[in-house]
């Protein structure tokens, strides 16, 4: 565990807490893509199949449980909670996420480290995580205005990806046998998806104005 990895995990956790807080405090999920949240829930469920078979550390197992539980809690709120559910704007959240799931699964069947049940699902979760933010970014783009908490949610998610890349560079330099191309290449693709959002986030931050994405 290095400082970049820890910072990455913490910003990841923070992003989810910011989102839960926003939904809980306002009893509204406006501006939040349910499809992205469902994709993340699938990502965590598919990746942490090893929760009961491989023990890495108490920290690892604890975080896995937290990520699974919090992502399911968000999906539950958006689908079941009577007040939150009503605020969900289906018209704006139109991204066809089933195609992402199918494409990522096919890719995982072809590109994986080992052809075993867990490894294929692990690769699938890595690919799906890389593109899971797309429905959210498209929703933000379509609605134009981004409220502060939704902006912060995406900002922290992007920061998490940035820290993970620094973590991989650090590990590559310090651990002689560190090679994991699937995770690293997917991670770089995922981080690149945030570049555009970050650009506008920093401009609005610099000008102290509300975040607005161009149409």
């Amino acid at each position: 565990m290095n400082i970049f990895r820890l910072a990455g995990d913490m910003t990841h956790l923070l992003s989810i807490i910011v989102l839960l807080l926003k939904i809980y405090a306002t009893k509204s999920c406006s501006g939040v893509s349910r499809k992205t949240q469902e994709l993340y829930a699938i990502v965590f469920l598919a990746r942490y199949l090893d929760l009961f078979t491989d023990f890495i550390s108490v920290y690892n197992s604890f975080m896995k449980v937290v990520f699974i539980a919090s992502s399911l809690a968000i999906v539950w709120c958006m689908r079941v909670h009577p007040m939150v559910r009503r605020s969900y704007d289906k018209e704006l959240d139109t991204f066809r996420h089933y195609f992402l799931i199918a494409a990522c699964f096919l890719l995982a069947l072809v590109l994986h480290e080992k052809f075993t049940f867990q490894e294929v699902f692990w690769a699938f979760s890595i690919y799906l995580e890389a593109v899971a933010i797309l429905p959210q970014l498209v929703l933000l783009q379509r609605s134009g205005n981004v409220d502060n908490l939704t902006g912060q949610y995406v900002f922290f998610l992007g920061a998490y990806r940035g820290f993970y890349i620094l973590n991989w560079i650090y590990r590559y330099l310090t651990e002689p046998r560190f090679t994991r191309w699937i995770a690293c290449v997917s991670g770089v693709v995922q981080t690149a998806l945030y570049a555009d959002f970050f650009y506008y986030y920093f401009i609005s931050w610099k000008n102290n104005s509300k975040l607005k994405l161009p149409a």
Binding site: D9, R47, K64, F67, E113
Partner: peptide, 10 residues
Amino acid sequence: ADVITEHDEL
């Protein structure tokens, strides 16, 4: 354990 398939990250 085999380094390649060890997933120690989240």
